[in-house]
Amino acid sequence: MIYSPYYNVLVVFIALIGIITLISLLAIFLGPKKENQAKKEAYECGIPSPHTAQQKLSVKFYLVAILFILFDIEVIFLYLWALNFQELGWFGIIEIFLFLGILLVGYLYILQTKALDWES
């Protein structure tokens, strides 16, 4: 197997997951155990809880998630260009400005359709 520094990421992750899991397990064994019904209830407000909160959400959250994916891919492209800035020269700058210009039209459309307006 060829050595790559990225294997260290895996090793560090496994070690950290082990340590943190150990701590949380330790707390389970060290603490007292006194259970009662009131303790197990959801901490909401006096009236009986419906025991679920997983219901329909505002569509705004989905919109934000979709917009995020679009713009995040843009950011990743920009990193690739930024790393090769010196080799690409003016060609790279003009191309990336064109790319950003097209995305900017989309951004203005988003603003105009009030997709980011949280008051409505």
Partner: peptide, 19 residues
Amino acid sequence: KLLFKEDGNPSYVQPFFYF
């Protein structure tokens, strides 16, 4: 204090993700 506190276990949570 935090280490020796009771590990609360509410009954209406989704156990795996909660842990």
